[in-house]
């Protein structure tokens, strides 16, 4: 299983903050799977500024997912 988290604008656009789904090996496949939930999912998760974190660290290009990973999608940060 994967735990998938959504924050801020993305959380509001999708109406979800946290869900669990079956393990898939790549972020791209994960977005394809999540996109079955509604037509807005793919454009929201594939928007150019979306940041993806795996296990609370920003994902490296091409980084693969392991079973049990926590994946987060969030917009550019605005703290401070």
């Amino acid at each position: 299983m994967l735990t998938v988290l959504f924050f801020a604008r993305i959380r509001e656009q999708l109406g979800e903050s946290r869900l669990q789904c079956a393990h898939v090996s790549s972020i791209d496949t994960l977005i394809d799977t999540l996109s079955l939930r509604g037509e807005q999912w793919s454009p929201v998760l594939r928007a150019p500024n979306v940041i993806v974190a795996i296990n609370q660290a920003v994902a490296r290009a091409g980084q693969l997912l392991c079973d049990g990973d926590e994946v987060a999608f969030y917009p550019p940060v605005t703290g401070g």
Binding site: A8, R9, A53, V58, P75, V77, T78, G79
Partner: peptide, 19 residues
Amino acid sequence: RAPFWKKETIDGGSRWVDA
């Protein structure tokens, strides 16, 4: 880098602050 997001309230409405 730190994952914080600000949402501001303006004239009764609210909007996410852009980076």
